[in-house]
Write a protein that binds this DNA or RNA. Sequence first.
DNA 1: ATAAACATACCGTACGGTCGGTTTTATTGC
DNA 2: GCAATAAAACCGACCGTACGGTATGTTTAT
Lengths: 201, 201
Amino acid sequence: MLDQAARIAAEQGLAAVTLQAVAQAASVTKGGLLHHFPGKQPLIEAVFTDLLARLDEEIDGLMAIDAQPYGRFTRAYVDAFFRETRDGEKSPWAAIGISCMADAGLRLLWSDWMRARLERHVGTDDAPALSVVRYAADGIWLANLTETAGLDADELDRLHDDLKRMTRPMDDHRHDDHPHQDNLHHDNPHDNNQHDTRTLR
Amino acid sequence: MLDQAARIAAEQGLAAVTLQAVAQAASVTKGGLLHHFPGKQPLIEAVFTDLLARLDEEIDGLMAIDAQPYGRFTRAYVDAFFRETRDGEKSPWAAIGISCMADAGLRLLWSDWMRARLERHVGTDDAPALSVVRYAADGIWLANLTETAGLDADELDRLHDDLKRMTRPMDDHRHDDHPHQDNLHHDNPHDNNQHDTRTLR
DNA sequence: ATAAACATACCGTACGGTCGGTTTTATTGC
DNA sequence: GCAATAAAACCGACCGTACGGTATGTTTAT
């Protein structure tokens, strides 16, 4: 059910996530759906929480293979966001993330996530310069949703490189013309996530 | 009518901008309102266009008093956004801007505006470094809507200074403004929970 | 008199949510 | 093993309502 809800949100926007639609997509009736979630809002929040957990996983994975301590989280954050950005509208984050900002409940979930995450990485990602980088990543992500055609790939790559470079310690800043060294893997396009422990039909 | 619609959107979110509400706020009936606008979407778009025009004015005003050509538009953009950001939820942009991203029509209006504006300032604001600054401004604006408590004023000022500095030509960069005087003003006055925007009326 | 600016009443609908009943699944007692 | 039982998952019909939109008057300025 959560997966179907996420799919609908990703494909048709969060406004299209109606109890009917989700129930039908999950081959259940509205009654059955509402048996598991007390209402629509809890459903949405569950979807969003699920998404946050996946983002956590991705970021942790990226951080694990990053030798440089300084800015490790910010780099992973940037990479993760650029991956989502590159996926464009197909990414679950496209439609959900944007509507998240319009909803008070989801907004709280997001800011809590961010706060917790930053707190966890004080010491490596506390520098002011890094927060600018993270904000820029957010802005780029936003812009890519905004522009109907999206930013073109070259521009995206360039911005990605710029931001990545800004996450390195000061003395490491360099303008190499040999950019594409990021750890973005475009594997598992299907991402069948069944880490949901529930046994729903 | 446009003003009332904008007010409602700013105060209670764009979801609260219903034909009824706007009509009542403007001391008209729904029929009277729909006499001037063929539907809801055109109304919203009119409000948004109005907002864009005001933003244009503000930016033009800021650019007029900027002696330095390089990055002039980006500086004005940043300043304008930080002014809006500082106003927090009271700013019309708070609720409207965010919902703009969720709506295809408004998204188009915005990207058109941005494209036109950038095209107009090719030559002064074409540098890659400047686009990063603009994206960061967007991200900060977004974050300030996101965080329930908002970023605190000191943090905001610091980010503003950082971005402004980044809009200046390379040889003008200086790094001594914030000499690592402890990152302690990172603390948030814990959750001023006023994030529920609903009011009964 | 003519058209614009309204008002009033109404319609269709889609949505969130409720409720009572039915089926499936798990647990228990023997 | 197996029936009895409890609990959960699930169905289907229904309700209230709020919203966008329409269609037809009624007032007001020109």
